[in-house]
Every structure is written in structure tokens, then in C-alpha cells.
């Protein structure tokens, strides 16, 4: 075995091993601790788990792209809330009154365009000012959230369209609509990152920006496209979720950015950029959702769930660092 093979194997496969471990643990613990009669690995329960993974999962795919590219986007939660408001509010706008149910695709389109525009704004600022994406999106996180509150104050924005609810609750081949969206997004983003020139250049930029510049790759436009992708996906996530729920609170989507980043990092994407895998992010999303659901199943409350996830995240990153130490000659800083 070549040096590095083991750590590569651990890194690639770790998240799936972790998921198996979770499944076993919660199945066994559930037998003794759960108040419910049903087994944890009940088929319907698992289908529900996929569905509940979708809102975070769809955004996490975009975040993987952004982080591979060497950036980060903290504004996804606020973007998500804005797009939800656009979606629900647009359906009651007088302009579209004559459309009937044809308003649905129009509202979807508007919400998605909003997401792309907000992402493009982030990307443009990062590109043109050279300010770190962390700072730019920290600002836009606050700013976009401000827009949400300006729109309707503390009041929720609601509009329930039963055609839409039916669509969102439909199951095709057992899987819910939201699950399908998650799977399709995962496949498309995987294809983008592994098969297209844009995707490979995004890897190169995140890995060694100077080398990318030396090779004549135009760094700025690539970064902007990636911010538009994550904006689009935050909007898509909102569209999928709020088509069903029909009501958005101005606080919705808060801390989403952190859950998303947690899932991506658990999936093995490097914070520094250049390395990461879409499939592993999918695993990270499932692992977090399993933890939340499993701990709830055995009777733990939300605060315990957060504590456990936090501990696991730090443990994973520590393990990753141990596997990546370059050797004893390394400069100690």
C-alpha cells in the first residue's frame, strides 16, 4: 500500500462508515430507549428522513461547490428566507390574478431568479473588490435578513395553494417530491464538478489559486458563477420546502448556513478549498439528519442533539488533521 492510500480511503469512505454506525447504534439503542413502538429503521421513517434532509441537502450541494472553489457563503439562510417570501407572496399578487394555477411556475421562476440575483451580487462583490468571501457574505447575511424583516415586519407571510401542496406531498416510486429534487440536484452538481471544464477549474482555483492564475484561468467569473449556483440552490430549497408548508416566518432559515457547512465539512470538503466530493456531502447531509432524528428517537432533546453534533464535528476535523500531518520536519507554528 502506498503512503497516503489509507488516509485517502478513510477520508473517502469515512462518512458512509459513520452512517452505518449511526444506523446500528440507533436501531439497538432504540429497542431499549425509544418511547415509540416502531423500529428506527422503519421504511417510512427512512423515506421521511430523506425528505427532511432535502432543504439542507440541496443548499449543501451548492456550498460544496463554493468551498471547493475556496470561498464560503454565509448568506444562504437569509437568501432562503427571501426566496420563500417571493414565492408565497407572488402567488397573491394582483398582476397574476388571472393566471389560476399557472401562477405556480411563475412564482417558482421569480423565487429562483431572486436567488440567482442575490448570489450574483455576492459573487460580483467578491470578484470585483477582492474582499474575502467570509466577510462579504457575513455582510449580505445580515443585509438579506434585514430585507426579510423589512418586507413584512415580524409577521409571517402565508399563502397556501392546494395544487402546490398536493404536488409537494406527492410520492413517486415511494420517494417524496423533495427527495427527488435532492437526488436530481446531487446528480447535476456531481456532473458539473466532475465532468465540466467549469467544475475542474473550480477545483484548480481552490487548490492553488496562483497556479490557476498562472495558467490563465479567469478566477473571478468562475467564482461568480458558483455564487449564482448556490443562490439558485438556496432558492430551490425554499421553493421545495415552502410549496408544502405555505407559510414563512421572518426567522426561517436562520443558522441554515451553519448546518449546511457542518454537513459539507463532515463530508470531507476542505475549508481551505481544492478538495471535496459531492457524494460525500450527500453522506454528510444524511449523517446529520440521522443524528437529529435518531437522538430524537431515543428521547434526547434539541439541545443534546446540538451538543452531540458539535462534538462529532470537532472530533472529525481533529482526526482529519492527524491524518494530514506532513511529517516531523514540518515547521511548528
Amino acid at each position: 500500500m502506498q503512503p497516503g492510500t489509507l488516509s485517502t480511503f478513510l477520508k473517502r469512505g469515512a462518512i458512509w462508515g459513520f452512517i452505518v454506525l449511526e444506523l446500528i447504534f440507533f436501531s439497538v439503542a432504540g429497542e431499549f430507549l425509544s418511547l415509540s413502538e416502531k423500529a428506527f429503521m422503519d421504511f417510512d421513517n427512512m423515506l421521511l428522513l430523506f425528505k427532511q434532509s432535502a432543504p439542507i441537502g440541496i443548499i449543501a450541494m451548492g456550498m460544496t461547490v463554493i468551498m471547493i472553489n475556496g470561498n464560503i457563503d454565509l448568506s444562504v439562510g437569509a437568501t432562503y428566507a427571501i426566496c420563500a417570501i417571493v414565492l408565497l407572496d407572488a402567488m397573491s399578487w394582483p398582476v397574476f390574478a388571472g393566471l389560476g394555477d399557472a401562477v405556480i411556475p411563475v412564482a417558482w421562476l421569480l423565487a429562483l431568479l431572486t436567488g440567482v440575483a442575490l448570489g450574483a451580487l455576492n459573487g460580483l462583490i467578491v470578484w470585483k473588490t477582492g474582499v474575502d468571501a467570509f466577510i462579504v457574505t457575513l455582510g449580505s447575511m445580515l443585509g438579506y435578513r434585514g430585507l426579510v424583516f423589512m418586507y413584512n415586519g415580524e409577521q409571517p407571510t402565508s399563502h397556501l395553494n392546494w395544487t402546490l401542496v398536493d404536488f409537494a406531498e406527492a410520492q413517486f416510486l415511494w420517494l417524496h417530491t423533495a427527495t427527488w429534487f435532492l437526488l436530481i440536484v446531487t446528480a447535476v452538481i456531481w456532473f458539473l464538478m466532475n465532468r465540466t471544464v467549469h467544475g475542474r477549474n473550480a477545483y484548480a482555483i481552490g487548490d492553488n489559486r496562483e497556479a490557476a492564475v498562472n495558467a490563465g484561468i479567469r478566477v473571478g467569473p468562475h467564482m461568480m458563477i458558483n455564487f449564482m449556483i448556490i443562490g439558485f440552490l438556496a432558492a430551490l430549497s425554499a421553493v421545495v420546502f415552502y410549496s408544502e408548508s405555505g407559510s414563512v416566518n421572518p426567522n426561517d432559515g436562520e443558522l441554515y448556513e451553519l448546518w449546511v457547512i457542518t454537513a459539507v465539512v463532515l463530508g470531507g470538503t476542505k475549508l481551505a478549498g481544492g478538495a471535496g466530493s459531492i457524494v460525500s456531502t450527500f453522506g454528510g447531509v444524511l449523517a446529520i439528519q440521522l443524528l437529529r432524528k435518531g437522538l430524537a428517537h431515543i428521547g434526547a432533546d434539541t439541545s443534546t442533539v446540538n451538543l452531540v453534533i458539535g462534538l462529532i464535528l470537532i472530533a472529525v476535523l481533529f482526526l482529519d488533521r492527524q491524518l494530514n500531518v506532513k511529517g516531523k520536519e514540518e515547521l511548528k507554528i
Binding site: R195, T196, V197, H198, R200, N201, Y203, A204, D207, N208, E210, A211, A212, N214, A215, G216, I217, G274, A275
Partner: peptide, 26 residues
Amino acid sequence: LSLAEELTVAENIYLGELPRKRFGLV
């Protein structure tokens, strides 16, 4: 060394000008 370590040898050699098919595919 002006290389991206996580990418393959081929991608590094053709960095910035990967051969394309239609639709921007590598």
C-alpha cells in the same frame, strides 16, 4: 511548483485549457 495537488497529472498539465466537448464538458 505551480500545481494543484488534488487534481490529476493530466488536469495539471492542461490547466486552464482542458480539451472541451460540447456544453463545456471535459
